[in-house]
Amino acid sequence: MVPAWLAACAAWLHATPVAAAMREGVWLYPVVETVHIAGFSILVGAVAMFDLRVLGCARQLPVRALGAHLLPWAVASLLLIVPAGLLMFASQPGDFLANPTFALKLALIALAGLNAALFHVGVYRGVAAWDVGTAAPPCARVQAALSLLLWVAVIACGRLLAYT
């Protein structure tokens, strides 16, 4: 059940010119969705490469150097993902808010973000000990595997939104 204040916000957003353009334009929604997917591909690709390294692939690559290279790509991808996602949401906010798959997608994104934050403030602080040629600590490997699982689930939810 959507709270009344949130339903009112959704109704306001639905009535905006931007939302109308997203609904009525022949090409606007598909272009915005393509930008969203491209940005998400960059984000998940960067995350997956880093997580696979933490899980033990390519141990000759320094974890810190790989992270320093991939993190800017992941952060920059948010400049594509967030505005595009908000535009798509604006097209039918009431429908999205009522869709349990959308709620699940947002929850999974929040969990993936929390997992990443905990990784960086936790086990990653000791990365010097396992930077090159050494297995990451079990906690780091669990968090990397969880990260991969969460992002695959987010992708699945994104696709399921078209069918639910």
Rank of each mutant, 00 (worst) to 15 (best):
M1Y: 07
A4L: 11
A7M: 12
A8N: 11
A10E: 06
A11G: 10
W12D: 10
W12T: 14
A15L: 06
A15E: 11
T16G: 04
P17N: 11
A19H: 04
A19T: 03
A20Y: 14
A21W: 14
M22Q: 05
R23Y: 00
V26S: 12
V26C: 10
W27K: 09
L28Q: 05
L28E: 05
L28M: 07
Y29V: 08
Y29E: 10
P30E: 11
V31Q: 09
H36E: 00
I37V: 15
A38K: 10
F40W: 10
F40R: 08
F40K: 01
S41V: 11
G45S: 08
V47L: 15
F50Q: 13
D51Q: 13
L52Y: 05
G56V: 02
R59C: 08
R59M: 14
L61D: 07
L61S: 07
P62A: 14
P62C: 11
V63Q: 06
R64V: 13
R64D: 10
A65T: 13
A68N: 14
A68G: 12
H69R: 15
L70A: 09
P72H: 04
W73I: 01
W73M: 12
A76S: 14
L78Y: 10
V82F: 05
A84D: 00
G85Q: 01
G85A: 09
G85M: 00
L87A: 13
L87F: 03
M88H: 03
A90D: 00
S91Y: 06
Q92Y: 08
Q92N: 03
L97F: 05
P100I: 01
P100H: 03
T101P: 02
T101A: 12
F102W: 06
F102A: 03
A103S: 12
A103D: 12
L106K: 01
L106F: 00
A107V: 07
A107I: 02
L108F: 02
A110V: 13
L111Y: 10
L111Q: 04
A112W: 01
G113C: 09
N115W: 06
N115D: 05
F119C: 09
V121S: 07
V121K: 12
G122K: 11
G126D: 13
G126C: 09
V127Y: 03
A128I: 09
A129W: 03
G133I: 09
G133A: 05
A136F: 03
A136E: 04
P138C: 15
P138I: 10
P138T: 12
P138M: 13
C139L: 15
C139Q: 08
A140L: 05
R141Y: 01
R141K: 13
V142W: 15
S147E: 02
V152G: 01
V154L: 08
A156K: 07
C157P: 01
C157G: 11
L161R: 05
A162C: 08
Y163G: 01
T164D: 11
T164V: 14
